[in-house]
């Protein structure tokens, strides 16, 4: 066990955990920030996606020891009231079904739009294909990203 100080959603958090602990467990079990989801634990599903200095990465793969001194944003920090353009587009297209993968989808989509405000279909497919949705919401995800990129909301 060791004391770590990490920056999540602009706030400092101190946690006392084993250095091997993946960021995902720190978020879910130690900080009770359960918006970031556990889907596989080995970086194969995308449910645990967070922003790491602005880029989309998988928190299950990131030992806490490697996360210090970096800026981490989770779904809880994406917007205070759920009104980030991606979240609004998600609601309008009724993207979520069971909802479990959607925090990860939204974090990947919002990182994509930050880098590339007007992504093509191909850009969207390439960025989003690492986030598995078993309910099969993919075609709505594409439509919602387009809506969000058009900033109609």
């Amino acid at each position: 066990m060791a004391e770590f100080s990490i920056n999540i959603n602009g706030e400092k958090h101190n946690v006392n955990v084993d250095p091997s602990t993946p960021l995902l467990w720190v978020l879910r079990d130690h900080l009770k920030m359960v918006g970031t989801k556990y889907g596989c634990g080995i970086a194969q599903c995308g449910a645990c996606t967070v922003h790491f200095n602005g880029t989309a990465v998988r928190s299950c793969q990131l030992p806490i020891s490697a996360a210090i001194d970096n800026k981490i944003t989770t779904i809880e920090g994406l917007s205070e009231h759920g009104d980030h353009p991606v979240q609004k587009a998600w609601l309008e297209h009724d993207v979520p079904q069971c909802g479990y993968c959607q925090a990860g989808q939204i974090m990947t989509a919002s990182a994509l739009l930050k880098q590339n405000p007007n992504p093509s279909d191909k850009d969207i497919d390439n960025a989003m294909s690492g986030n598995i949705c078993r309910c099969g919401t993919y075609i709505r995800i594409k439509a919602a990203i387009k809506t969000a990129s058009d900033s109609q909301l």
């Binding site: 970086a43 995308g46 790491f52 989309a56 990947t108 294909s129 690492g130 986030n131």
Partner: peptide
Amino acid sequence: MLSAATAQIRNM
């Protein structure tokens, strides 16, 4: 390189 894995994994 872009055909490999996924965007998040390539980022890391």
